[in-house]
Design a binder for these strands. Structure first.
Lengths: 195, 195
DNA sequence: CTGTTTACTTAACAGTGTTAACCTGAGTTT
DNA sequence: AAACTCAGGTTAACACTGTTAAGTAAACAG
């Protein structure tokens, strides 16, 4: 394994186990059995390293979503499967999910805005499904792009509230996600299709 | 103005204008014309100071929401007004909104979990409205608590996506929020009321 | 044997949160 | 008036942080 890979692995491990606050260049280096400056041979700076980690997490999320894509299935079922897969990934890999949204573009002005929009690659799967529903005349949305974003944003909100431990302890997670997914899909379906 | 207030004001100003990364104890102190250690006379540590700022922001958000509460209005209109007020506050005061969700409880283990759940005070307004709708038999939800959380989470997601600049540039903000609010409310209404 | 490149290290800079110890002036007690 | 207390600051220091400039040792090329 190359040092670059080693650094990525160690960083991820620290980030997941100990949180972002503990992920310092020197700590990473110590665990990878090198000096902190060596990291700069493979990453321009800490932000660059963080960006590489974000990219890895996005790929993992994307992979988890692709697993549930199944064109043979009912359209609405597809939507629900994807929503649930998204939520499950976030809850199973909270730290990994968080780093995707942790860094705000304005705090990393050196880096191309593009990089941040790559979360799209995950949302595009959603857009595809919606587009298929439109093609097959199952639903009638006027803009699949906006619809996909809307649904994605709502799911992200549901996930985010749980991850940030902002959910009332009296509210059971399962019931909450069930209802949320139900709300989101119904809100989307009702919009243009006559009931 | 007491030094404590001065510190809070300066901190908030730095946080809003220059971002969290620039909000250091020494910088705050320099601007308040004291030494960094003086801050520790009024706040146990930086997290404590941050918590005070979060509290202020929550109060501001709450205030903005209370302004639109109007029991004389139509139930659905109330829901929409509140959703829009929430989104407007977040977009008008992005940094202030962000700090509410910036700090995760697990990264501040010294502090009572309670403090973080105080975002509830904002969401409770929503729960009240839903409860009113239930009392007046306009809607039939089985758990207003969960419903309120669901709606709030969805709105937070919509806001969060925009603030994190994760929205596709082709998607106009206004159209996005319009559709999102529409989705959210319809998804909620449809659930139990016959159409 | 020399020159160059690769992969790393050492030393240092300027900054961070935080603590312990100290000072200074105002108010209170004796 | 002299002594004491104490709030409201200060200075100095510790152990850390990201990052850079310069140096080094080994591998390889001609």
């Amino acid at each position: 394994m190359s040092l670059r890979e080693e650094i990525l692995e160690v960083s991820k491990d620290i980030l997941i186990k100990d949180g972002f606050g503990k992920m310092s260049m020197r700590r990473i280096a110590r665990r990878a059995d090198v000096t902190a400056t060596s990291i700069y041979l493979y990453f321009r700076n800490k932000d660059d390293l963080l960006l590489a980690l974000i990219q890895e997490s996005i790929d993992d999320l994307k992979e988890a979503l692709e697993e549930v894509v199944d064109p043979s299935k009912d359209f609405i079922q597809q939507l629900e499967d994807m929503a649930r897969a998204y939520i499950r990934f976030a809850l199973d890999h909270p730290r990994e999910y968080e780093i995707i949204y942790m860094v705000r573009p304005e705090e990393m002005p050196k880096y191309p805005r593009e990089k941040f929009n790559e979360v799209r690659s995950a949302y595009e799967l959603l857009a595809d499904i919606i587009d298929r529903g439109k093609q097959e005349n199952i639903i009638d949305v006027d803009d699949p792009l906006i619809s996909a974003y809307t649904i994605w944003a709502q799911i992200h909100g549901v996930v985010s509230v749980m991850l940030n431990k902002r959910l009332d302890t009296r509210v059971p997670r399962e019931k909450f996600t069930d209802q949320a997914v139900d709300h989101i899909i119904k809100g989307f379906i009702i919009q243009k299709t006559p009931v």
